[in-house]
Write a protein that binds this DNA or RNA. Structure first.
Lengths: 249, 249
DNA sequence: CGACCGTTTGAGGATGTTCAACGTTAGTGG
DNA sequence: CCACTAACGTTGAACATCCTCAAACGGTCG
């Protein structure tokens, strides 16, 4: 555990600035920058929080990739969402006593924990920030709904294309993609858990996408070769991501 | 359109009381009771709000059943959630400019609209209520995640059992079920859209559940004959609903 | 009465699963 | 540096689940 290095922008400020519908005041920005945060370094395949726990803090993603998931009693796993740097995946725990999901790392990660009481004090002092964080949780809920449509009503080819579109766009939005390619660190078993299909079928679907010249995925690195056709195959409409063009603000 | 009749408890008070982690003060209760609300009566299969709209008000369910849904371009529909009396289905529109979902009636309904500016004024005057409503939206997000696990990782038999368990419990919680039975008004095509399966397969699955002695569904009326076995088949754990026993408060 | 919708059932077919074998890659320790 | 291991990735074959098409029955409503 260590404090945040000085050079980094506080992830909460970054998050709020890309999400809030208003501009931060100096007082709000200062309060966010002063938020005490404990930084932890985590290895792949570690749970950060687990279903049925009652955490006393939330965390922000600083580096790496994590996922939210649930499992059936039969042991089948469903990934609900991936989280990229800048996200605050378990904000819900601030208001829901018992966690209904687990969040685990996919790749090596750095995350920053902030105590719930600290956040509550922040919100008391700066009520407008509540709107911004509330909005963030509503956007996350929107992603969940889009995944539900995707997994429920599209077949594996379009489904996988859709996931890749989303991940590429979200990583681009935080500056972690270059030239239609990005580092995901996702293995095929994990893709299966996110898309609700078997590992074998992931391999076949991936092959189809590859042979169609849309993407290649190797060593966890996603390269999109024909972005327009990938989006078309996925019926991808990025509105639900509520990303704002970084240049426009 | 008409005002709310005097005899009804204001749905927002009911909602908050079953959801908030604190007891309402007299001032808060009075403010909620005074919320101006426009009541509308709607027929089955009408959209209340539609994807891509920017509504200036949210609504509370007073009577009937509505559903949140999205469609693919191919016209396939995925129902994301059902809403029973007492719910406030589109609270998200308060913070998300553009709707990412449509909400339509399933049965004849009465709903009460409240303008967003009214709600914002309420929250400025009574900041504690924000926590309660925020919590409500987080609980809804939890339902969405449970549906995702259900639709992604359970097959049709368990999946349908799970949906029936949820609906029965939620209707019981608002006093709309008697003796393990309730009025749903759901047709088989609609069940298919919620479960992500075809109408034909709904019919067959329903038959299996019926022949196993678990439930009967006819004329939109659900009767659960063996609740324990239905819950077991569904791996149903009601924690995610965050319902509180009405007797304990 | 006819039209329409929901429901049921059958038959054939598509999508995706499971089991199994094998190749590939990366890490570990001698 | 090599052998060993373990996980991921690929491919084939048999099978399950679920879909589509189609036909038939029943209720409801104009």
């Amino acid at each position: 555990m260590a404090e945040l290095t000085q050079s980094e922008i506080h992830p909460f400020i970054r998050k709020i600035e890309t999400i809030a519908l208003f501009a931060l005041s100096e007082a709000e920005r200062a309060a966010l920058a002063a938020l005490p945060m404990q930084v932890a370094v985590l290895e792949p395949y570690q749970d950060i929080v687990r279903e049925h726990e009652r955490p006393a803090r939330s965390f922000a993603m600083l580096e790496g990739l994590t996922c939210t998931y649930k499992t059936t009693r039969a042991g089948k796993r469903q990934v609900m969402a991936y989280h990229v740097p800048g996200d605050v995946p378990d904000f819900q725990s601030l208001h829901l006593e018992v966690l209904d999901i687990s969040i685990g790392t996919v790749t090596p990660c750095r995350v920053g924990f902030v105590r719930h009481e600290t956040l509550r004090a922040l919100f008391r002092a700066h009520p407008r920030l509540v709107d911004a964080f509330w909005r963030a949780t509503l956007i996350d809920a929107g992603l969940c709904r889009e995944w539900m449509l995707n997994n429920g009503r599209r077949e594996s080819y379009a489904r996988m294309a859709h996931l890749f579109c989303e991940l590429l766009m979200r990583l681009e939005a935080v500056g972690l993609a270059q030239g239609n390619a990005c580092e995901l660190g996702l293995t095929q078993p994990e893709l299966g858990d996110a898309l609700g299909i078997s590992t074998v079928h992931v391999s076949r679907t991936l092959k189809e996408l590859r042979e169609a010249g849309l993407i290649t995925l190797s060593g966890g690195r996603l390269a999109v070769h024909d972005r327009a056709r990938l989006a078309a195959a996925a019926e991808f409409d990025p509105t639900y991501l509520h990303l704002r063009d970084p240049k426009t603000h």
